[in-house]
């Protein structure tokens, strides 16, 4: 430990907390993940390659990551607008709306899935008018997309909210007195100050959507190659006792997810260093 920590630190407890952190992370995260990798080594490289490049797997991965990314983008934009309204304006029912934002956190995902499916089914409240316009939501990728937006929105709102609250109104006044238009104030002053939080919210919403299972499978229709998400494919393979196939897909998901989140993390670090070195 003396190698890692300064001999006499003003913040004691480095050894203890570091030890606990490593043990805990190993038990909870690293060992199960390692198990996953070990399991996938049951397959030869060629077999592994065949499984992950099969049409069904690729489609499922594309649907999961592509729609998650799109949903996170929508949440980034809409979540920012929601945060803005909740933080900056006083209107009747503000507290209620503020509380509603957390509902996707708390609601069992299966309940959310059933509710969304009922709503967007062809005879549903929203599904019927949309069907009249020729738009089919339930049992299509569009349904998956909507479920992913639903579960992701609180992540953006809750990460950006405290940062926007803390943003000093004097900053905007200073910009205005320097002659900046409203547009310039938003794009050159407010958004850059929020960037690190926005990136965090985006990464969380994205990660949640990739891992989402419960709400999506009800509304997706689960047609192979069309509206089948990767987590569902894993479950299907498990129920067929094709464990190696399941782990192979899981490993790919894990690696892709890790790379993306790591990249966003780096981006966020960079943005933070720009904001407050």
């Amino acid at each position: 430990m003396s190698v890692l920590a300064p001999r006499r630190s003003t913040l004691p407890g480095f050894g203890l907390t570091m030890g606990l952190t490593l043990t805990w992370l190993s038990l909870i995260v690293l060992i199960p993940l390692a198990g996953l990798f070990v399991r996938s080594t049951d397959l030869s490289l060629a077999q592994f390659w065949d499984i992950v490049t099969s049409r069904r797997t690729l489609s499922a991965l594309k649907i999961s990551f592509g729609l998650s990314f799109a949903a996170a983008c929508v949440n980034l934009v809409m979540g920012t607008i929601v945060v803005w309204a909740l933080v900056r304006y006083r209107f009747p029912g503000r507290r209620l709306f503020d509380a509603i934002v957390d509902v996707p956190f708390a609601l069992p995902t299966a309940v959310a899935g059933v509710a969304l499916t009922a709503l967007f089914a062809q005879k549903g409240w929203l599904g019927a008018p949309l069907a009249a316009m020729g738009i089919k939501v339930a049992f299509t990728p569009l349904g998956i997309f909507i479920a992913m937006i639903f579960i992701g929105i609180p992540f953006v709102v809750r990460t950006v909210q405290p940062v926007l609250i803390d943003l000093d109104p004097e900053i905007e006044e200073a910009a205005a007195s320097l002659g900046a238009s409203r547009w310039h104030i938003v794009t050159k002053v407010i958004l850059p100050s929020l960037t690190p939080a926005l990136l965090t919210g985006f990464a969380l919403a994205f990660a949640r959507a990739v891992g989402e299972y419960g709400s999506v499978i009800f509304i997706a229709g689960n047609l192979p190659n069309v509206s089948e998400i990767a987590p569902l494919l894993i479950v299907i393979r498990l129920s067929e006792f094709r464990y190696a196939d399941a782990t192979a897909i899981a490993v790919v998901m894990l690696v892709v997810a890790f790379v993306i989140i790591f990249a966003v993390n780096r981006l966020q670090r960079w943005a933070q260093s720009q904001a407050s070195t």
């Binding site: 000093d168 004097e170 900053i171 006044e173 200073a174 910009a175 007195s177 002659g179 002053v189 850059p192 100050s193 960037t195 720009q274 904001a275 407050s276």
Partner: peptide, 16 residues
Amino acid sequence: RHVGFVFQHYALFRHM
């Protein structure tokens, strides 16, 4: 108004 205003707590843009 073209008025220069200096704030008590400076109100500098932290990201610039």
